[in-house]
Every structure is written in structure tokens, then in C-alpha cells.
Amino acid sequence: MNLAKTLESKTKIRFQDCDPFNHLNNGKYTDYFMNHREDELIRNYDIDIYKMARLEGKSWVSSSNQIAYLKPALLMETIVIESQLISFDNSNLKVEMRMYNEDKSHLKAVIWCGFVHFNLLTQKRETHSDEMMDLFGAVVNPVDVSIFDERVKQLKTPSKVQ
């Protein structure tokens, strides 16, 4: 089984998500990133977090976000979003997502999202199953820095990006 480690999708910046300057509103960047990740998890790994919550009472909840806004995303612009799992343990995931213009020549934003596996029935942290741990081991795509600001600086200097 050869699973993609970096997931990618395209979308358009919509009017209702923009500020009066026709830029994507800062609060909406996270929505675009999360929508991308949810769709790509289903498409690439057959993981539907909402179905999982409904049937098993387990899913992931956000535990942290670090975001850098580098260039504005503009009204009706087509953007590309990439995401990858950069680390995991028995109950945590860390995902990096990057937003680019359509030809990926300009990085617009970077986010690191932390997620905790959570049991909705007991309202407590949940341990990942062996099956999930195997999947995460197969798709993890770590980056060579552990500090967000260093990663942003690295991404802004393309020749140094892994």
C-alpha cells in the first residue's frame, strides 16, 4: 500500500470569507485549512472523522494552532493547500498545512495544528488503535525543525526546504 504523505487540493477564495479589502479574513484561513484536511483524509485514507464520531464515539479535537500569514489570499483567487502529518504519538497528531497561490510560486500561510484523539462518550483522551498507529507510521512526513517560527523561515527560503 503506497499512501500519499503530502495531500493537496485546490479551492477558490469566496466573497463571504473576505474582509473589506478583498483579502481572506484572518479567521477564515483556519476554516480553509480544516476543510481541506477533512476532505483529503476521506479521499486519501478513508478516514471520515464525523462518521467515526457518530459510529464509534471517537474522533480528534483541536488542541493547538500556530499560524503565520505571509501573503494575502484574494477574493476569487484559486489557491492550493498542502498538508502532511509531521508527528504523532499514542494520542496526539501534529499536522502542517501550507497555502499557496495556484502555481505554488507564493506561499500565503502556514499552520501547525495539534489534535488530540478524544472519546466523546467518556469525554477523555483516547489512545490511538494499532491500525491508526500503523497508518500514521506509513504516512508521517516529518520536518527537520521543531520550532514553528524556524519552519516558517525555512519555508520562506525555498532552497532549504526538505
Rank of each mutant, 00 (worst) to 15 (best):
K28Q: 07
D103N: 13
M76C: 07
I147L: 13
N65C: 06
I79V: 11
S59K: 01
K124T: 11
G57Q: 01
S91Q: 09
A4K: 15
N101C: 07
K12A: 12
H117W: 10
I42F: 11
E82S: 08
N65I: 06
K51P: 09
R54V: 08
D130V: 13
N22I: 04
I111M: 10
L155P: 04
G27E: 01
D17N: 08
L135W: 14
N65F: 13
A4P: 11
V116I: 13
T11P: 11
V110K: 00
F118V: 00
L107K: 06
R98C: 08
N92D: 05
K156T: 09
R125N: 07
L107P: 06
K124P: 01
N35D: 10
E82F: 08
S9Y: 11
D144A: 13
R54N: 14
V110I: 15
M76D: 15
I49R: 05
T127M: 09
I42M: 10
S159Y: 08
D89E: 00
D31N: 08
R98H: 08
Q162K: 06
G137D: 14
T11I: 07
I49G: 02
K58D: 12
H117Y: 14
T122H: 01
T122V: 01
A4E: 14
F15N: 15
Q123W: 04
N2Q: 11
M132L: 15
R54K: 13
N2T: 07
K153V: 11
K28C: 02
G27D: 04
F148M: 11
I81E: 03
S59C: 01
Y69L: 02
D144E: 08
T11V: 07
E126I: 01
Y45V: 14
W112S: 14
L7P: 02
E150T: 09
H36M: 12
S159V: 13
S9T: 05
F21A: 09
L107N: 08
D130I: 12
N101Y: 03
L70D: 02
Q16W: 04
S146D: 15
S159T: 13
K108Q: 13
E96K: 05
Y32I: 02
W60S: 12
L7E: 07
A109F: 03
M1P: 08
N2L: 14
R14K: 13
A138F: 04
R37Q: 14
N44M: 04
I47R: 00
Y100K: 05
G27V: 03
E131Y: 10
I67R: 06
V95Y: 03
L135Q: 06
M133F: 09
D31Y: 10
D130F: 05
V116H: 04
D89F: 07
I147R: 07
N65H: 12
R43V: 12
D103C: 04
L70S: 01
E38Y: 10
A73S: 10
V61P: 00
M1H: 15
K160Y: 02
D19P: 01
E82Q: 15
G27P: 01
L121M: 09
D39K: 13
V152I: 00
H36D: 14
V152S: 04
